[in-house]
């Protein structure tokens, strides 16, 4: 079991199996997102309260859900990297951050657009949107710290530690913002993506959530593949994997 995991986490092995699985995930993601979008926009009944503006939840809720999950996954990889020094875990942590930040940005922008017809303002200090904004700062902090330290291993370890410190604080930030929000505007209830959703409207939402998940995995894997080639560019397996002819010939000559 352990030796299997160890082999799976070696960069050349990952490069090989991810080469097969990444395009498959990408196709699944594209199909789910396409079907979910068409279904959500055209084949669900109109909400009796919010009219057609509710259709924004099909992009807002998956982005908001995944933005948090990706941060958790990033912190988890960061912890694995710090404890066992598995390089692939750091490659993953580095690849998750931009995707997660993009999801967070989407959740913020679509939430703000949804808020305009619903609350009458482009920005409401709603607990969910405020938490999302702080989450964006956490992502930007991790990415900025990684890019500011010149030495790669040091940058990786510092970013990993910051991601873990962030994940310890995420629930505290979340609850304090919720509490702050309930204190100041008990009347404004966040209607954004509460589970009270009619089944006829729910199916496209699930399709979109899974679509975002596959998008995340496919995108993070392709980022990780580039990162690995960059980091191991002087290794022999990279030359073989990229089909460098001289390397192939030398290898054939050895045999």
């Amino acid at each position: 079991m352990w030796s299997f995991l160890h082999r799976l986490s070696s960069p050349p092995t990952f490069y090989r199996w991810s080469g097969v699985i990444t395009p498959i995930f990408a196709v699944i993601a594209a199909a789910l997102l396409l079907v979910g979008t068409v279904w959500g926009l055209a084949f669900t009944p109109t909400d009796y309260q919010q009219g057609d503006s509710f259709r924004i939840i099909y992009v807002h809720v998956p982005a908001a859900m995944l933005s948090l999950s990706v941060y958790m996954a990033m912190a988890f990889s960061a912890a694995i990297f710090l404890i066992w020094r598995i390089k692939l875990a750091d490659v993953f942590a580095a690849s998750f951050a931009p995707v997660g930040a993009a999801f967070t940005l989407l959740a913020l922008v679509t939430g703000s657009i949804w808020g305009r017809p619903t609350w009458g303002t482009w920005w409401e200090w709603d607990a969910r949107l405020t938490s999302e904004l702080i989450l964006l700062f956490l992502y930007l902090g991790v990415m900025a710290l990684r890019s500011s330290l010149p030495e790669r291993n040091q940058a990786a370890r510092a970013a990993a530690l910051l991601a873990i410190v962030g994940v310890v604080n995420v629930p505290i930030i979340h609850f304090s913002v919720e509490w702050w929000n309930s204190l100041h505007q008990g009347s404004t209830v966040s209607k954004l993506g509460r589970p009270a959703i009619d089944p006829s409207m729910a199916t496209p939402l699930y399709l979109m959530i899974f679509g975002f998940m596959f998008f995340w995995l496919a995108n993070a894997f392709s980022r990780a593949r580039v990162e690995i080639v960059d980091r191991e560019q002087n290794k022999r397996w990279v030359r073989e994997a990229l089909g460098d002819k001289a390397e192939m010939q030398r290898r054939a000559g050895e045999k």
């Binding site: 700062f137 500011s148 910051l162 604080n169 505290i172």
Partner: peptide, 26 residues
């Protein structure tokens, strides 16, 4: 975390301000 970075003041603020949110609120 930022000790090795010259002119790390703005970065330090970016890293810390989100972590300061609960303390500020309370």
């Amino acid at each position: 975390l930022t000790v090795g970075i010259r002119r790390g003041g703005a970065l330090l603020a970016l890293l810390l301000l989100p972590l300061y949110v609960p303390t500020l609120i309370l």
